[in-house]
Design a protein around this nucleic acid. Structure first.
Length: 342
DNA sequence: CTCCAGGACA
DNA sequence: TGTCCTGGAG
């Protein structure tokens, strides 16, 4: 086996993480659930959601049979809600296409909703010891530094080259133990040692052969020129409350921001909000403190305004009156939950 | 407060 | 190639 993969495997055994709730199992359902939650999301955030989700849905069959409402409520606050919708669809496809057992190959796994090449490889290597490479952001950092790979990862050709290099470096022997350890080791190394800023090179198992360290500037890797520009938008949120304390919430459309979540009615302008408030016979809107909610590509300036009303605003979508104690069982975007409960 | 990290899909 | 969120670090 290559020097590199041996060092990663040995380091994972002695210094890697071994007690995360989704480790020490080869149950594809649990591994898959953790990998989807961990996409774009930090371990400490996932910890609180993972156990609760498993309690509600102990098996992939339970999840497939669950309702959209339950799934979105359990995901509420984790962000990137298309992951939750794909998770649900994926469970249903595992039942219908694969008889309730996750497939064992990267190719078949990646054919399921929400599972891309890297996540498919993670599941296959953890659960089935497949010789498959992952290439998430942590691993990109580790590999570009170790190899001194300076091509711009904004280009798909560079990305393709790095995938090939990642596969070249995989363990070649003792795969049933080496592959899960190697995959976990690459994740742990990127998360704990080979960090974006101030990496702890002295603690790294491959520091002796790391090109970036030899060059003296590991933080220069990975190279990516992609720059995102953020647009800006303003939304007015109508907080209509009945005398009994119930709040009117609407289900968002299945595409776009906060897709399929419950939310206060949203208006593009304050005039539209005021018209809606008037039409339902509510009191004069009382503006609350506006606040900023930042998405990857958009600065969302949110302007909540509160009214008392006994009838709903003309609904743009299906909605209902919900009492405060019911909110925890609803899929709400984090800023709306904070507004209503904070 | 600002800045930043983190995959899949149309 | 643009679209999806949140939390943590500074």
């Amino acid at each position: 086996m290559s020097q590199f993969s041996q060092q990663i495997v040995a380091w994972q055994q002695s210094h890697g993480r071994h007690h995360l709730p989704w480790q020490n199992t080869r149950d594809p359902y649990r591994v898959w659930l953790s990998e989807i939650m961990l996409q774009q999301t930090q371990v400490t955030t996932v910890l609180g959601y993972y156990e609760r989700f498993l309690q509600h849905f102990p098996t992939v069959a339970d999840l497939a049979a669950g309702s959209d409402e339950e799934v979105m409520a359990l995901w509420s606050g984790l962000g990137y809600y298309s992951r939750a919708r794909n998770l649900h669809r994926c469970a249903q496809e595992v039942m219908s296409r694969f008889g309730g057992a996750f497939p064992r190959t990267v190719e078949e796994l990646a054919s399921l909703p929400g599972i891309g090449r890297s996540t498919a490889s993670a599941i296959a290597s953890f659960c089935f010891a497949a010789r498959a490479a992952i290439l998430d952001a942590n691993v990109k950092r580790v590999l570009t530094r170790a190899l001194g790979f300076s091509d711009d990862l904004a280009s798909s050709a560079a990305e393709k080259k790095l995938w090939a290099l990642a596969e070249d470096l995989l363990p070649t022997t003792d795969l049933s133990t080496a592959m899960p350890r190697y995959t976990q080791g690459m994740m742990d190394l990127g998360a704990a040692i080979c960090t974006p800023k101030k990496p702890s090179c002295l603690l790294c198992p491959v520091h002796g052969s790391c090109a970036a360290r030899r060059e003296g500037a590991p933080e220069r890797y990975p190279v990516k020129t992609k720059k995102l520009k953020r647009s800006s938008a303003s939304w007015w949120l109508l907080w209509a409350e009945r005398a009994d304390g119930a709040i009117w919430l609407e289900k968002r459309p299945p595409k776009g921001i906060w897709a399929s979540l419950y939310c206060l009615p949203v208006y593009e302008t304050e005039a539209q909000l005021r018209q809606a408030a008037q039409e339902c016979g509510g009191t004069a809107p009382e503006p609350l403190a506006p606040f900023l909610h930042v998405l990857t590509h958009k600065d969302l300036h949110l302007h909540p305004e509160r009214i008392r009303a006994e009838n709903p605003p003309l609904p743009a979508a299906a909605g209902g009156w919900y009492r405060p104690e019911q909110l925890s069982a609803l899929g709400l975007p984090a800023p709306v939950r904070n507004l209503l409960q904070g």
